[in-house]
């Protein structure tokens, strides 16, 4: 069954952080269909907890992060990830087409800034590009 094949972790593992369950489900499904393994967190605090929970953080290849979230919002969480896990590329996925925010996020070291609704191919391409950058860093 195509579904089972695509659910296998063949391309890498992506951490999806969004407070909306439906968005996590959509993004997760798109990524799984694209061949990625997916881990989900509902906000920045949960994501940080997850990354520090004993699992090897290097298991996460790419982080996709929303901006507007309760507890620890996206911008704060991204700063933390950049400081703690500088080799893990981060993609912002937000519904704000905000040029200033995009610029400041890219300055923070974010790899890509995607605005919802985002085409499936564009999202998969952004994750693959991020993954390649990660391999370049690693080598």
């Amino acid at each position: 069954m195509a579904w089972l094949v695509s659910e296998r972790s063949v391309e890498g593992r992506v951490l999806v952080i969004d407070d909306e369950e439906q968005i996590r489900k959509v993004v997760g499904t798109v990524l799984r269909k694209g061949g990625f393994d997916v881990v989900e967190a509902e906000d920045g605090a949960k994501a940080i907890e997850l990354l520090n929970s004993g699992d090897n953080p290097m298991m996460i290849d790419v982080i996709i992060c929303d901006i507007r979230m309760p507890h620890i919002n996206g911008t704060e969480a991204i700063k933390y990830f950049r400081a703690q896990y500088p080799s893990v590329p981060i993609i912002v996925l937000t519904a704000y087409p905000d040029f200033q925010l995009a610029t400041s996020m890219l300055k923070e070291g974010v790899t890509d800034y995607l605005v919802k609704p985002v085409d499936r191919e564009k999202m998969l391409m952004a994750v693959k590009n991020a993954m390649e950058k990660r391999s370049l860093f690693a080598t």
Partner: peptide, 24 residues
Amino acid sequence: IAHDLKNPLYCIREFAQFIEEEHD
């Protein structure tokens, strides 16, 4: 408001596409 409308619209579009591709 635009932000809050975009999220469910995005979900509707994607879930509709998933249905098109799905047999289960």
